[in-house]
Simulated assay, not measured.
Amino acid sequence: MSNLLTQWQPTTPLKKRSVRNHPIARLTITLCILTLGWQAVVTIFQLPSFILPEPLGVLHKLIQRHDVLLRHAWITTSEIILGLLTGLGFGLMCALLMLLFSPVRRWMLPLLIASQAIPVFAIAPILMLWLGYGMASKVVMAAIIIFFPVTTCCYDGLRHTPQGYLDLAKTLNATRWQILRHIRLPAALPALASGIRVAVVVAPIGAVVGEWVGASEGLGYLMLQANARMMIDEMFAALLILAGLSVSLYFGTDFLLKRAIPWLPENSQSPS
Score class of each variant (00 low, 15 high):
residue 127 L to M: 11
residue 97 L to V: 09
residue 132 G to Y: 10
residue 268 S to N: 15
residue 49 S to C: 09
residue 257 L to S: 04
residue 110 P to A: 01
residue 186 P to A: 00
residue 87 G to F: 03
residue 224 L to Q: 12
residue 140 V to M: 05
residue 258 K to A: 10
residue 155 Y to C: 09
residue 133 Y to T: 15
residue 72 H to A: 00
residue 208 V to W: 02
residue 42 V to W: 09
residue 150 V to K: 00
residue 97 L to F: 10
residue 177 W to H: 08
residue 270 S to D: 10
residue 69 L to I: 11
residue 240 L to M: 15
residue 230 M to K: 15
residue 105 R to C: 07
residue 228 A to M: 11
residue 160 H to R: 15
residue 183 I to C: 03
residue 123 I to D: 02
residue 197 R to M: 10
residue 106 R to K: 13
residue 136 A to M: 11
residue 154 C to K: 02
residue 204 P to M: 04
residue 143 A to M: 01
residue 95 A to C: 06
residue 102 S to G: 12
residue 80 I to L: 03
residue 4 L to Y: 11
residue 195 G to S: 02
residue 223 M to W: 03
residue 181 R to Q: 14
residue 248 S to R: 04
residue 25 A to M: 09
residue 2 S to T: 13
residue 74 W to C: 11
residue 191 A to V: 01
residue 12 T to W: 02
residue 65 R to C: 11
residue 189 L to T: 08
residue 269 Q to C: 04
residue 200 V to Y: 05
residue 152 T to V: 14
residue 175 T to A: 06
residue 20 R to S: 15
residue 46 Q to I: 11
residue 116 Q to F: 09
residue 151 T to S: 02
residue 134 G to M: 10
residue 207 A to E: 02
residue 125 P to W: 07
residue 189 L to G: 11
residue 80 I to A: 09
residue 110 P to R: 01
residue 198 V to R: 04
residue 114 A to T: 09
residue 143 A to T: 05
residue 78 S to T: 14
residue 166 L to R: 05
residue 46 Q to R: 13
residue 9 Q to V: 07
residue 8 W to Y: 15
